[in-house]
Amino acid sequence: MIRKIWDKVMNREVISYLIFGVLTTLVNWVVYWFMVKAGIDYRAATAAAWVVSVLFAFIVNKIFVFQSYDLHLSFVMKEILSFTACRAASGVMEMVLMVIMVSWLKMDEYVSKILVSVVVVIANYGFSKAFIFRKRKEEPL
Rank of each mutant, 00 (worst) to 15 (best):
125 Y>N: 04
66 F>W: 10
28 N>A: 10
65 V>H: 01
119 V>P: 02
106 K>M: 07
29 W>L: 15
82 S>T: 04
53 S>E: 04
64 F>Q: 02
47 A>W: 01
107 M>K: 05
92 V>R: 03
62 K>H: 10
40 I>G: 03
71 L>F: 13
51 V>W: 05
22 V>A: 12
93 M>D: 12
18 L>P: 00
135 K>D: 15
140 P>V: 11
27 V>Y: 01
15 I>S: 06
32 Y>S: 03
58 F>Y: 15
21 G>V: 02
119 V>S: 09
125 Y>V: 06
119 V>I: 10
14 V>L: 11
124 N>W: 08
136 R>S: 15
73 L>T: 12
139 E>Q: 15
61 N>D: 01
123 A>T: 11
107 M>R: 07
28 N>Y: 08
135 K>F: 08
14 V>T: 12
85 A>P: 01
115 L>F: 09
20 F>V: 12
113 K>G: 05
90 S>H: 04
140 P>N: 10
91 G>D: 03
96 V>F: 15
4 K>G: 04
4 K>I: 07
6 W>M: 14
100 I>T: 12
39 G>D: 12
101 M>K: 04
36 V>L: 00
59 I>T: 11
63 I>A: 05
117 S>L: 09
84 T>M: 03
90 S>K: 00
59 I>C: 07
54 V>S: 00
86 C>A: 14
100 I>N: 06
134 R>V: 12
6 W>A: 15
114 I>G: 05
114 I>P: 01
64 F>K: 03
21 G>I: 02
131 F>W: 15
111 V>W: 15
38 A>P: 01
110 Y>R: 14
69 Y>T: 15
86 C>G: 14
76 V>F: 05
122 I>F: 07
78 K>S: 13
59 I>F: 05
84 T>I: 02
99 V>N: 05
30 V>K: 00
92 V>P: 08
68 S>F: 14
90 S>F: 06
43 R>P: 02
26 L>C: 07
92 V>Y: 05
107 M>V: 06
63 I>E: 04
16 S>F: 12
16 S>L: 14
66 F>Y: 13
75 F>P: 04
105 L>I: 08
94 E>K: 08
